[in-house]
Amino acid sequence: MQKSSRIAIVVLVLGILVFIPFQMLYHEHDKTEDLKPDFEGSTLELADLILHTSGSYSNRIVEISGQLTYSDASVITLDHRFICLMDSNSVLSKKMKNVTIKGRYVGYDDLLDEFKLDNCLIITSN
């Protein structure tokens, strides 16, 4: 084997040895749009499941539909009880009435009797 070929192989192997751990250490955060929801339905159905069944939805991706009852630059509220912290890329409009959002359910807020989500995206609105 020629010397230049050997150098090329060594460089390639070293490159792979550096690249793979780097990719493992600095991989990107999961994107909500790429994740499959574990629950799809209305806010009422999800509230019922969370409060009345033993299964945990914490840290799960959910796609929920409800009436928009509040919105500002970073948050929308569905049906007064689902507080959705929006992904920074989401576009909010005060004209929206019925909204379907996809996001990560983080937990039940017992201080305010509300359900909290983050990394939310608007799927549909009218």
Binding site: M24, L25, R104, V106, L111
Partner: peptide, 18 residues
């Protein structure tokens, strides 16, 4: 004063650290 934080909502720049 009362406050409540969901631990999962802490966002790190590096995903693996999170």
């Amino acid at each position: 004063v009362a406050a409540l934080i969901f631990i999962r909502s802490f966002h790190f720049e590096i995903a693996l650290m999170e």
